[in-house]
Design a protein around this nucleic acid. Structure first.
Length: 565
RNA sequence: UGCCCCCUCGUUCAAUGGCAGGACCCCGGACUUUGGAUCCGGGUAUGGUGGUUCGAAUCCACCGGGGGCAACCA
């Protein structure tokens, strides 16, 4: 997509950055970061954050770091690290040499922890996690101080050293910041800084027995990297006082945390926990299932990076929790695909048509425009013959008034070819099913125009039976049947709203020859049907297509409204 | 019965004390060798009540509604 078509967004985060740049608050530097935890694949919500962080860096001449927030070895895997990098790159962003891991900072973090202990600002607590949770107090009440809170500094130092050395079992001790058990903000009630985890870390292996908690790791990582604007989602707003406390207490470089509303999209779920659940329970075919709101899923589905970036630009950035209509995302994809997709003809549910007055054994080629939106795309030849396939939906034996397509005795245009008139309907005598149409064609209409000015009300797509490529086509619908998957009956979970018809696999489709050998991920339009792309499951001579999205369909709209009497 | 945050067309984002506007969506029409695309027109919004002000979506107060926070997750 033309970069000019996407206006540079203006939002409150960019406003802050612009103001800071102007005032010289950070010496004119702009450094942001995208800090995913490698415990799942990136989704469209992350895309919003990626576009925000990398976008701001690009617009203000700054840099954006990719930092893996890998502080929990029990949930994180290298597979995710690789997938995340691939997805960010595919989206069109580049972190240059600024690839970091929170685990790179474990030594520094540990040294800082000792510094806090020495300052009397942290202590080792040997209460159980249940005791700690209970003593932290309810939402409306205050917390109670740990019996270990006032233990001597030397003892804390010793205990923490032994925790680090692996002398204690998991769950037997933690290091806590010594702040205020009566703070109205729960996060300030002596938060845990380190817990004992005897798990192998994807990068540091068995080096550590203690791992930093998110709050302890995140702000300090920002500080080490000299981040200027640490942009995160709304749920971390109440963590900000803690973010600030750690940095201030340590007396180190202190970035500004800014929170924005995470993206929700209708008819899907966005939490990594739920997406992981769908994958693990085989409710979808993996993280990159085309029905998933993951970046890799959308990519496999045929969405373009440009469309996703444009979507991110127009939804804006705000502090109000909201759910964006999936139709807006789909609009962005259609808009982009309309401009760039070469057109072809493909028949999903074939109905055989014999042109009775067309000579047996004859074949000719007709000229077809590749993309009416792009004259530079040129044209191609499409073979035509006596036996064709058309879409079953394009014929009705007894059509309602609003049906413009083929019917007995009616003339329609075959796109780029000829006008044909249906003369007979052949049915299976046993089932009554229509198995073939007999038609005649008007040789004077070659190319699709009649010298006498006749204008059929419909133009149909078709393929020559002799030349057609057989294919599998996968049709997708929304993953959930409700705008809000959480809207469920008593006692039911979000999965009750999974759409049982989110995937429909069609075999025996017939495509024009040019579609037989396209590279994986090629994106095309099947005329009158929608946008499709080549799935990696394709084999030579046996392509598999995913339907990215349908075209808008006036006839389908009328049917849906029941106005087709 | 604590703390924090948020309420503008159906949805979403603008309007930074000065004519409430755009996009999506929906409806209707034009055009059309894709019932596509495109173009044109239409579509009951500032949660409520007070206050400040020449003037309030915007500032203040109260009320109402919604969301977040009680992992040794991030």
């Amino acid at each position: 997509m033309d970069e000019n078509a996407t206006p540079t967004p203006t939002d409150f985060v960019r406003q802050i950055v612009a103001d800071d740049t102007k005032s010289g608050k950070w010496d004119g530097r702009v450094v942001t970061r995208f800090p995913p935890e490698p415990n799942g694949y990136l989704h469209i919500g992350h895309a919003k954050s990626i576009c925000l962080n990398f976008g701001i860096a690009r617009e203000f001449g700054g840099t954006c770091h990719l930092r893996f927030d890998d502080t929990n070895p029990t949930k994180e895997e290298d597979e995710y690290v690789l997938a995340i990098q691939r997805d960010v790159r595919w989206l069109g962003f580049d972190w240059g040499e600024h690839l970091y891991y929170a685990s790179d900072y474990f030594d520094q973090l540990h040294a800082w922890a000792i510094q806090l202990i020495q300052a009397g600002k942290a202590y080792v607590d040997e209460q159980t996690s249940a005791e700690i949770r209970a003593s932290r107090g309810k939402l409306a009440s205050r917390g109670v101080e740990s019996p270990h809170r006032d233990r001597p500094i030397a003892e804390n130092l010793d205990l923490f050293a032994r925790m680090t050395a692996g002398e204690f079992e998991e769950g037997t001790a933690v290091l806590r910041a010594r702040i205020d058990m009566e703070a109205p903000n729960q996060h300030l009630r002596d938060p845990v800084m380190y817990r004992i985890l005897k798990a192998s870390h994807h990068r540091t292996g068995a080096k550590w027995c203690v791992y930093p908690m998110y709050d302890w790791a995140h702000g300090q990582s920002d500080s080490i990297e000299k981040i200027t604007h640490s942009i995160c989602t709304l749920e971390f707003r109440e963590h900000r006082p803690l973010y600030d406390w750690y940095l201030d207490t340590l007396g180190v470089y202190h970035p500004q945390q800014i929170e924005f509303a995470r993206l929700n999209v209708s008819f899907t779920v966005m939490s990594k926990r739920r997406l992981l659940n769908l994958v693990e329970e085989d409710l979808v075919r993996g993280w990159n299932d085309p029905r998933m709101p993951t970046i890799s899923g959308m990519r496999r589905r045929g969405y373009t990076a440009e469309a996703i970036r444009h979507f991110a630009a127009i939804i804006g950035v705000d502090t109000t929790e909201s759910t964006v209509d999936v139709a807006l995302l789909e609009h962005c994809v259609r808009e982009d695909l309309n401009k760039r997709s070469p057109r072809f003809m493909g028949v999903l549910r074939p109905l055989r048509v014999v042109i009775e007055n067309y000579p047996e054994g004859r074949t000719e080629e007709v000229d077809a425009v590749n993309n009416p939106e792009d004259p530079a795309a040129g044209s191609r030849k499409v073979p035509f013959g006596r036996v064709l396939y058309i879409e079953r939906d394009d014929f009705m034996e007894d059509p309602p008034k609003q049906f413009f397509r083929l019917a007995p005795g009616r003339e329609v245009r075959l796109r780029y070819a000829y006008f044909v008139t249906c003369t007979n309907v052949v049915k299976d005598p046993a089932t009554g099913e229509i198995v073939e149409l007999r038609c005649t064609y008007d040789p004077a209409t070659k190319g699709g125009d009649s010298p006498d000015g006749r204008k059929p009300k419909a133009t149909l797509h078709w393929v020559s039976a002799e030349h057609a490529v057989p294919a599998e086509v996968r049709l997708y619908d929304h993953l959930f049947t409700r705008e809000d998957p959480d809207e469920v009956a008593e006692g039911q979970g979000w999965r009750a709203n999974l759409n049982p018809r989110s995937l429909e696999t069609l075999t025996g489709c017939r495509l024009e020859p040019a579609l037989g050998d396209l590279p994986v991920e090629s994106r095309v339009q099947f005329e009158r049907l929608g946008y499709f792309c080549v799935d990696p499951d394709s084999k030579p001579g046996a392509p598999v297509f995913n339907r990215t999205l349908t075209l808008k369909d006036e006839w389908a709209r009328l049917q849906k409204k029941g106005k087709t009497a």
